[in-house]
């Protein structure tokens, strides 16, 4: 009852004035208070990143001896060294090729499975759901040795070693999809459950097939959920290094490695153990960070909107 009263009071001239006056001290204090906390956390998150980026413009001598001060002169040579030694351009290309397919297909397959499991009752539904759930809880590195053999042998068995075998785009794409599925399914499952059933029923009565219904009606409705899980998958696959480190390596001295970006970065990190070139390492880091940062900033609004929709609606 009080709720409705106050709601009605708001538009009147006197209402807001009095209420604002009443809560002013608390509000001002809280605002100041929240700004301090937010700013402190913002610094804790932002400063290390800025610091790391700045290091790429400095000489090794400065990095070692005055790590906390600004560079006296700005060098960009480290970026060139990182580009050549870290093969950033080439590995960036490989990463994009793999992720174009793996992210898209992860989402498609994940949505298909999640939709069927969430909206259709059939024997074995729960079993399949828990099968995917299991994938969420197993430590990834434990399946590594068997996974290597599986990729190798399956491709050989099918005569497709150069397509989906070791050190191929196809092989890594399939593995990425498979390992992204549990989380994608888990996330989208709860999402599809909450979507209204009315539309679906109406569609079916209109004579639409289940497939049409999915692609024409349910998938567009699930867009917010797809956006957020898409972001997860992009970040997850972009930063993945255990899987490519196992599968994307030349299998003999006569093969070219199709490394992805994280492997290039890892190489730079490992190199820094034998020949110190800190600036190069930080520059590589910055270069590797940049594309995903730009993606994030560009799509920031959609991502936030997607997240808003995904869980609650």
């Amino acid at each position: 009852m009080t709720t409705t009263t106050s709601k009605h009071e708001l538009p009147t001239a006197s209402g807001p004035v009095t209420t604002t006056e009443k809560r002013k001290p608390e509000g001002r204090f809280l605002t100041g208070f929240s700004h301090v906390f937010l700013a402190v956390w913002g610094l804790m998150v932002g400063v290390p990143l800025i610091w790391a980026t700045v290091q790429s413009f400095r000489s090794d001598d400065e990095i070692l001896h005055q790590p906390l001060s600004l560079p006296t002169s700005w060098h960009i040579g480290a970026f060139g060294r990182a580009w050549t030694k870290g093969h950033i351009g080439e590995y960036f290309f490989n990463t994009i090729v793999v992720m174009t397919f793996s992210v898209t297909l992860s989402m498609l397959f994940g949505a298909m499975v999640a939709y069927v499991l969430a909206r259709y009752r059939f024997p074995g539904n729960r079993a399949i759901y828990y099968l995917f759930f299991t994938g969420l809880v197993m430590p990834i590195f434990l399946g590594l040795i068997p996974l290597y053999k599986t990729v190798q042998n399956l491709a050989a068995m099918l005569g497709l070693s150069s397509v989906i075998g070791l050190n191929t785009y196809g092989g890594l794409i399939l593995v990425y999809i498979a390992y992204s599925l549990p989380f994608t399914v888990f996330f989208l499952h709860s999402f599809f459950r909450t979507l209204s059933t009315d539309v679906a029923e109406a569609g079916l009565i209109d004579g639409a097939s289940h497939t049409t219904l999915f692609f024409r009606v349910m998938l567009p409705m699930a867009k917010p959920g797809l956006v957020s899980i898409g972001l997860f998958n992009i970040i997850g696959q972009w930063n993945q290094f255990i899987l490519p480190n196992l599968l994307m390596k030349p299998q003999s001295g006569f093969e070219e490695g199709k490394f992805v970006l994280t492997q290039g970065l890892l190489n730079l990190v490992n190199n820094s153990k034998y020949e110190t070139d800190w600036a190069r390492l930080f520059a590589g880091m910055t270069l590797a960070m940049l594309p995903i940062l730009v993606t994030y900033l560009v799509f920031n609004r959609q991502i936030q909107a997607g997240l808003t929709g995904s869980i609650t609606k």
Binding site: I145, Y148, K149, Q152, Q251, S252
Partner: peptide, 8 residues
């Protein structure tokens, strides 16, 4: 290790 177990 994978190459030893994978016989390559």
């Amino acid at each position: 290790q994978p190459r030893f177990t994978g016989n390559t």
